[in-house]
Design a protein around this nucleic acid. Structure first.
Lengths: 265, 265
DNA sequence: CTTACGAAG
DNA sequence: CTTCGTAAG
């Protein structure tokens, strides 16, 4: 059995001030993928940098205070990788990967983009390069008889059921037709599986991100953009998915909620 | 009787979040001089921008988020003035002045400086120009039979009794020999009076500013830099000076404390 | 609305 | 240590 959690912490220093460290102490997950760490190792609070019982791999962005991903694992990884072989993105704190004995786990923070800007162009360049990487990754692991799961903040809601206000967001970054089609391609043609959607059924939610603006959280005006994207063999083993929507504002340490999946065997 | 308070609010927006508005509601002062407002009128919370029963004069800096002074008066001023006729400093949010029937009140935020830098040069240029203004102001008002008081954050501690750690600050901006001599000149030669010092006696304090760094407030490692500098006739009428050191951290809305003087007649 | 950086105090 | 502006989300 393997339990994997993905959580965009939106600044691990702010999150730690608000209770992230005790969440980490309490979790029963075997692997935790983090995004938007927004700190270098020397800036990360000790209680989470060298957290007892975990092997950690941190990949900060070259650009201070931005992005940054990590993977924490109770078992020692057999391989560690920062980036995915991209000239442009490997120092941008957007991807790390570890190998465990029978599964490869990636932590992804896809650029959020902003419709009609240079940042949206960058997001699309990332999507193109990363899709090629995912195709190769699947082939390599398939030949080795291994499974793969890429967890993280994909910054794309796939279907109308993946965000509360889909009608008003059709022209906004995160729900653009080309972004949605990119995920469709990954699922239907490359053969990856959106694990939480499969477990939850084709009904709205479960959302994992609520903007800090307005009353998005209280109105549950959320988006499901924190995904577990796995190879079919691993997806078959998934039996539970939980989104830790902390209903008490006191328990919230990020604008995203942790998304946890348990894989049997 | 005239009660005048001077208070460096260190950002009126932050101060308002921390209780400045109720301090203003509760004060019995007739005139309140503010410094480091750090906001334009459209950014100032309504509850203090158009506070009931006060005539207000705001002078923001051209440079957003910096400096900014104001005078609030229960009586309608007979004249309002922004700046002191300085090409360099009149749009820097460092001086405003109002005339009441028998007294002129200025609110001053003197540049803080930083030893050995361009900002210290700027402070000294300000001091030079402002001293010339104060000499002229005194003459003009004296001829008109009027009194003058310039309240504000002068950013200079005059004597050793005006700051806790005078020994270690002899080479730091705010306690440099040339700055101290400038005040001495204003008092001994131009003829202005340091009202609070006169009332308090030649004993340490009362401090009105404690750095947010370290434990300055808890250790009372303060500076007396928020002054009432008046003409001798008005100084004669001063009978009480109070520094509102809010001992409960919950009541503190600035790193400076309000300094209030009551003038009789 | 919130994060982090940087300049200023 | 805190303010604010700024960029980013």
């Amino acid at each position: 059995m393997l339990t994997v959690t993905t959580a965009n912490v939106n600044g691990i220093r702010a999150a730690t001030r608000k209770g992230f460290a005790s969440w980490l102490t309490d979790t029963t997950a075997d692997v935790v993928c983090l995004q938007e760490v927004r700190a270098t190792e020397d800036q990360i609070p000790d209680e989470v940098l060298a957290v007892d019982g975990w092997h950690t791999l941190w990949a900060p962005a070259a650009d201070k205070g931005r992005a940054g991903v990590a993977v924490l694992s109770r078992h020692e990884p057999t391989r560690r990788q920062v980036g995915f072989g991209s000239q442009e993105f490997d120092t941008s704190g957007r991807y790390v990967e570890i190998e465990l004995p029978d599964v490869t786990v990636g932590s992804l923070y896809l650029p959020s983009g902003e419709t009609g800007t240079e940042r949206q162009d960058q997001k699309e360049r990332f999507m193109k390069e990363f899709a090629a990487y995912l195709i190769d990754l699947k082939h390599r692991n398939s030949q080795a008889g291994r499974e793969v799961v890429i967890c993280g903040d994909w910054n794309i809601a796939h279907q109308e059921i993946d965000l509360k206000n889909w009608k008003t967001n059709r022209k906004n970054a995160g729900f653009l037709p080309e972004e949605r089609e990119w995920l469709t391609h990954l699922y239907d043609e490359v053969g990856y599986v959106d694990v939480v959607r499969r477990l939850h059924g084709e009904v709205p939610g479960p959302y994992s991100w609520w903007s800090y603006r307005g009353r998005a959280f209280d109105n549950d005006a959320g988006w499901r953009i924190d995904l577990h994207v796995s190879t079919p063999g691993l997806a078959e083993r998934a039996d539970t998915a939980v989104v830790e929507r902390a209903d008490s504002h006191d328990l919230r340490w990020s604008d995203h909620a942790p998304v946890t999946v348990t894989y049997q065997h």
